[in-house]
């Protein structure tokens, strides 16, 4: 059972929760990222995700390590789906268990923000009349230091 995984099949949320559930945890926080229909006034018909799978899984595991270091006693599992996804389908599920509730919220939020910075996954939006890779257009995102820091992708 891999705690950090890229998959092509639909994600069952409970499976991700089951990976972090344990007796000494009093809280499990989950984040579910889904495909949104409207972005900046444009209607998406479907999304296509692509990943550099082996590196993406390593980077997800690195996020888990960062969370363990920042919030001792936490346990993290992340699964991201790739391929074609329809509106409202689940693209990513994060589950973090911690001894107490506050840390689980903070750690889960941290995980999704880091995914958007350091994990090699790309999203292509398909509309009725076009398509676009999110992230590499309009130079919305740039890494002045040559590596990801904390830039926010406004179209995420």
């Amino acid at each position: 059972m891999k705690s950090f995984e890229i998959v092509t099949e639909p994600i069952l949320v409970q499976d991700i929760i089951d990976k972090v559930i344990r007796a000494d945890a009093g809280a499990i926080n989950t984040f579910i990222g889904t495909v949104r229909e409207m972005t900046l006034g444009k209607r998406t018909t479907y999304l296509k995700y692509e990943a550099y799978v082996p590196m993406a899984e390593k980077q997800l595991a690195k996020i888990g390590d960062e969370i363990s270091a920042r919030w001792p006693g936490s346990n993290t599992a992340i699964t991201h789906r790739i391929g074609s996804l329809d509106i409202s389908e689940v693209a990513v599920v994060i589950a973090v268990s911690t001894p107490h509730r506050v840390e689980s919220f903070d750690a889960c939020r941290y995980a999704i923000e880091r995914i958007k910075e350091i994990v090699p996954i790309w999203k292509k939006e398909h509309w009725d009349n076009g398509e676009m890779w999110v992230g590499d257009q309009l130079e919305k995102v740039s890494y002045s230091k040559g590596h990801p820091e904390s830039e926010e992708d406004k179209n995420d």
Partner: peptide, 10 residues
């Protein structure tokens, strides 16, 4: 070597 354009997962 892999070239990684700005990522957009999540």
């Amino acid at each position: 070597v892999a070239f990684i354009p700005p990522v957009s997962g999540g």
